[in-house]
Design a binder for these strands. Sequence first.
DNA 1: TTCAAATCACCCTAACCGGGGGATAATATA
DNA 2: TATATTATCCCCCGGTTAGGGTGATTTGAA
Lengths: 210, 210
Amino acid sequence: MSSEDVIRVVIIEDDEIIRNGYAFLIGKEPGFHVVNKYASFDEAAKKISADEPEVILLDIELPGTNGIEALPKLKKIVPDAFVLILTVYDSEKLIFDALASGASGYLTKNSSSFKIVESIREVKEGGGPMSINIARMVIKSFQRNPDSPLSKRETQVLELVGNGKNRSQIARELFIDLETVRSHIKNIYMKLDVNSRADALKTARKNKLI
Amino acid sequence: MSSEDVIRVVIIEDDEIIRNGYAFLIGKEPGFHVVNKYASFDEAAKKISADEPEVILLDIELPGTNGIEALPKLKKIVPDAFVLILTVYDSEKLIFDALASGASGYLTKNSSSFKIVESIREVKEGGGPMSINIARMVIKSFQRNPDSPLSKRETQVLELVGNGKNRSQIARELFIDLETVRSHIKNIYMKLDVNSRADALKTARKNKLI
DNA sequence: TTCAAATCACCCTAACCGGGGGATAATATA
DNA sequence: TATATTATCCCCCGGTTAGGGTGATTTGAA
């Protein structure tokens, strides 16, 4: 955990041109030091510990162990390092998986070099440097469908189903009768054209009804 | 939907000093026009349609109908307006609720006036202008607990439970025996010290195990 | 005033859930 | 190498739940 006046950066990226490009861009920035760069996780795994990186730029599309798989392993080797994901694809699932696995931020490769350097700085200060398009995606992922076919009460019931609650638990929680819960669930099934809790949740989540 | 060369802004904020402060700060910015300002949603409801706002700054802590309740109603009256939430509290639940109800962005009141103006611009361009502290919170909300007591398989099983699947559905999905699923669930219950699906999910989500 | 929403009622059968009690082989991890 | 964890499977049990069918009433909004 050496914290002098430069930020120690390690780059893991298989494309040599991009790798060297980043290394150059970041290295020339005052206050930044690119300690090392690797073409794959497997290569990095042995030596990265000695690099004592504070921030790791990690490509998702890596040969061998890919970025998502590499993330938790990296976190084990250098737990205090912040990991910034770099990728060309801004697929929703990929991003959320990466964040879940402990990435501190996420940048698409079309980000300007200024933005990248800025992000490294921000992530080191504890901020969450999402690029604008990622932020948009995250916000969108939170937003419910305003044209939901489900009524307020039905939505409420389905949410509790999503919490693993059974009919009687739901009834107790909403201060309504067991039979009323049944009615709501039946109506939900009809509206969503399903006939099981699992399918109802699947459809509802896909369409952002809950 | 008049879109000339100025961004039409409406402010809903009960504190007169803050309201006028924002109005002044934004109004003096070239390219921005504060069409109107209101002290409450109920006041705004009748007239805001005529304002044709493109961006609405909405305070959460409002007398009468509060910001969260106001959001969906606002969205109904002026569906094309982007709503930026303003608040002093950056409580996690509040933020996620607001985003779920259709807020396009979220700013804490300690944001600089530059940041606010910048955010209005960004939100109008379709970006998601989260302040740094909000971004941090969102990223954190995605991150799993790396010290989870659950094994990989157990985590997987519990996730499927969270999707409303029953034992046999889980067994089929993971290509394992029904009894194996039972064992996993029993072990999950033991580790989390619970004895029902609902409690397991509650504990697991609270501790970010799934 | 008409329609959706929210509430409650009773029928049924098959399946599910959770609590016991085990066992075995593979894989870590110390 | 030894021990612990993990993943897999097996049996018994009783009480509950799920989902299908078919209703009714009241409230509130369009």
